[in-house]
Write a protein that binds this DNA or RNA. Sequence first.
DNA 1: TAGAAAATGGACCAGCAAGTCCAGAAATTC
DNA 2: GAATTTCTGGACTTGCTGGTCCATTTTCTA
Lengths: 217, 217
Amino acid sequence: MSDAPTEKGRATRARIVEGAAEVLREQGVAFTTLDDIRGRTGTSKSQLFHYFPDGKDQLLLAVAQFEADRVLEDQQPHLGRLDSWESWRQWRDAVVERYELQGDHCPLGSLFLQVGRSGPGARAIVTGLMRQWQEQLARGMRALQANGLVPSDLDVDRTAAALLAGIQGGVTIMMSTGDSSHLKAALDTGIEHLRTTGRTGGSGGDRCGTDGAPRWP
Amino acid sequence: MSDAPTEKGRATRARIVEGAAEVLREQGVAFTTLDDIRGRTGTSKSQLFHYFPDGKDQLLLAVAQFEADRVLEDQQPHLGRLDSWESWRQWRDAVVERYELQGDHCPLGSLFLQVGRSGPGARAIVTGLMRQWQEQLARGMRALQANGLVPSDLDVDRTAAALLAGIQGGVTIMMSTGDSSHLKAALDTGIEHLRTTGRTGGSGGDRCGTDGAPRWP
DNA sequence: TAGAAAATGGACCAGCAAGTCCAGAAATTC
DNA sequence: GAATTTCTGGACTTGCTGGTCCATTTTCTA
């Protein structure tokens, strides 16, 4: 995928992608020109087109992939070990911290909007990221089930999907308003849902209204 | 705010805003030019600048406000009467239908990204929309409380914030992937959270683990 | 009805940013 | 160490798009 015959070439290419990611995070895709990227990365126009012959779109796509990879990496190792309430709490804190640090620009959201139409490339990146993310959340919930902390008849996939949506929306709102309380609310409520759905006391007796029928009476 | 001395003027201005909203929804803000809008609305360049002297940004802002108003309107009358489980269900269906119909482009999301930096205007629109939306959800939850369907010690504001985040994220994901299951999961799980948090049987006896302490053990 | 104000049409301008090109330096290969 | 490939620099082109300008028509007002 990332073709670069020589060592120097690979380094330059990486420098371009990382530098572009920086600029895009700061200025937003709508206000970033190739010259900005060129300036930041200390490269020339011809280099940009040497490594990304299809132009800006191809570069943006590479950045999108780069950012998408970062998203999950930044949640590790917590995201991979969601097998206790404590680990869920740590993960929750990591997510909040990560996005509060990131400030008020969502690299993927904006990148996607720009490249959106250009073939299935961008969509594939987002779809893949969401799938992996949700998968890891679901795995964590199953771990809780295995440890008897959550009832086994919980619809793990649906709950994971809902939690993921909450995170996503929390981040979106935070980008728009600068307030992270929605993200926190989504995370806390989502996890609380897991906890209250589970057995309340120690006894396996009175399950708390979690009937099999998922939705409506 | 919307100054237009004569009747004809107001009509033209409205035509521009509505037509622009259409085009923007179809093509996305990044790929829409003033000429596209001009063509769609059957106007001339000078008209565009006559009604929006500050240029494209001002027009986009007007469209953003227009779309923001639509968002809440489209959820009525359900959103205003969330006082029974049935009304919540109807509202849920309305939301899903609305966004499934809208297809794969989020007018506000993209508009915000474009106008984002230009003063507090865009941010104010988004912030206001979120505030109103969440307020209405919270009011619905309090109605449930009043009817004894949800325990009175529920943290309404936090729960409403989480539900709003879930919707927002569900829509975002749907825009990116074309799949509405996350939106549905967020809505259903959110409402289910209300229902299972409430008393399980009819008796006021065993409340279901909803301890006062909101978050962590 | 006359004059002012608003509305409209469309040609025109200017700047910017993506993309091209070729010459030359560095590195790799034989 | 010569040839070939890769890498780099930067000037140049080109198309597009937001924005300007002014003439003309329509509408309002007195």
